[in-house]
Amino acid sequence: MTARIVLQQADITRALTRISHEILESNRGSRGLVLLGIPTRGVVLADRLGAILDQIEPWSGAVGALDVTMYRDDLAKNPTRAPSPTSIPEDGIDGKTVVLVDDVLYSGRTIRAALDALSDLGRPRAVRLAVLVDRGHRELPIRADFVGKNLPTSVEERINVRLEETDGTDEVTIE
């Protein structure tokens, strides 16, 4: 099966810029914002969102990473995963508005794990979810607040998100 490009570099940048504005709008500024990327590509996206937010208005939030490996419900069914580092702002997440950032939203199980991981780290005021691609097929009652692109897919298809920082190129393909 051949891969078809659905988002190119400019599309990704535009989507992230729009999401940044939406985040600022819903939060009424960047006060108390914490963007937490879910490894691997969510961390890259969170960094980019942070950089864009910084350009839009004076940025008083923080960017970090949240590893969910140890909270997954499919650990026993897959090869052992090596965890990634978690980095949380110095002053914690208590009372903050946490925006979880991931590349693809699919079954929702990763986000379920992220919510569990988050509750062991503190008690945020609110938790939001930003994803670059929402491909449907949810298995849990979870939805994204900020979506780059809704991509109706079949379960057999594969969505590949490639980013400059991790893969050397910016594109989203479907195969």
Binding site: M70, L75, A76, K77, N78, P79, T80, R81, A82
Partner: peptide
């Protein structure tokens, strides 16, 4: 203990 007890045995990404 994590590496021994989680997963199906082989180490993946």
């Amino acid at each position: 203990l994590y590496l021994l007890l989680s997963g199906t045995g082989e180490v993946g990404a």
